[in-house]
Write a protein that binds this DNA or RNA. Structure first.
Lengths: 118, 118
DNA sequence: GGCACCTGCTAACTTCTATTTGCATGTGGG
DNA sequence: CCCACATGCAAATAGAAGTTAGCAGGTGCC
């Protein structure tokens, strides 16, 4: 899904996920070096609970991946790393994604009719 | 601003603006053809008030531009059109934008009073 | 045992966003 | 004059998102 044209809903989720300062910092930090949760929380100076929420959202969007590892001391540590992605954001790309948006009402077909309302 | 690296705050605003189904549809519709507000509202089947809110947000992000024109009948009509933009979204681009993010406590603006924080 | 780490979760609160509703203004034309 | 169509905005509501606080479990070590 990296680079290829995402569906409208995926695009909305991707953009919504990245549209957050904390999550941008998380991505940047993980790009520099993979890290485990507590470590990352200290580095970014945010609470662990908050970081976990953001990490979960990033993971749900497929922007980061988690791997649970056990250190030599037997401590369980969850390491995160960024998933390489590349999205070209242009009006054309947006227009291409729009037809695949799930609509509240089933508006299938090309826009050709004229709605008559009060 | 098309293509060049946006600042962290700009990036957050841009992504946040595009992360919305209605606004994506608006961009797509305006890419196909520029339109005025009421016309566009009918085409997208949303209320004018709602459309105006979204258009204002798109305009604030610099994604669309407005031009007030007067038709031959003397009716004032506000035409919107998309601004060409191209943003490459990659982990590297994110990392490059992060350093320019305004910190949680540094509120940008014209000299606001700095209250005591707990 | 108690302390220092690691992890996870939920409930509650606050803040932001999206959407609706209603009103106000101006034009042209039957 | 009144209707149709264009514009604009503010207040109020519903809903989503962000954030904190608190509790739970596990391991290693002095």
């Amino acid at each position: 899904m990296s680079g290829s044209s995402p569906t409208g809903d995926e695009l909305v989720r991707l953009l919504g996920t990245l549209a957050n300062p904390h999550r941008l910092r998380i991505v940047a930090a993980l790009l520099a070096e993979r890290a485990y949760v507590s470590e990352l929380a200290r580095e970014l100076r945010i609470s662990r609970a908050l970081l976990q929420v953001h990490l979960r959202k990033l993971e749900a969007a497929g922007l980061v991946t988690a791997s649970l590892e056990v250190s030599a001391e037997g401590k369980a540590m969850k390491f995160y790393e960024v998933t390489p992605f590349s999205i070209q954001l242009t009006p054309q790309a947006v227009a291409a994604a729009v037809p695949t948006l799930s609509t509240p009402d089933s508006v299938q077909g090309d826009g050709l009719d004229e709605g008559a309302r009060s």
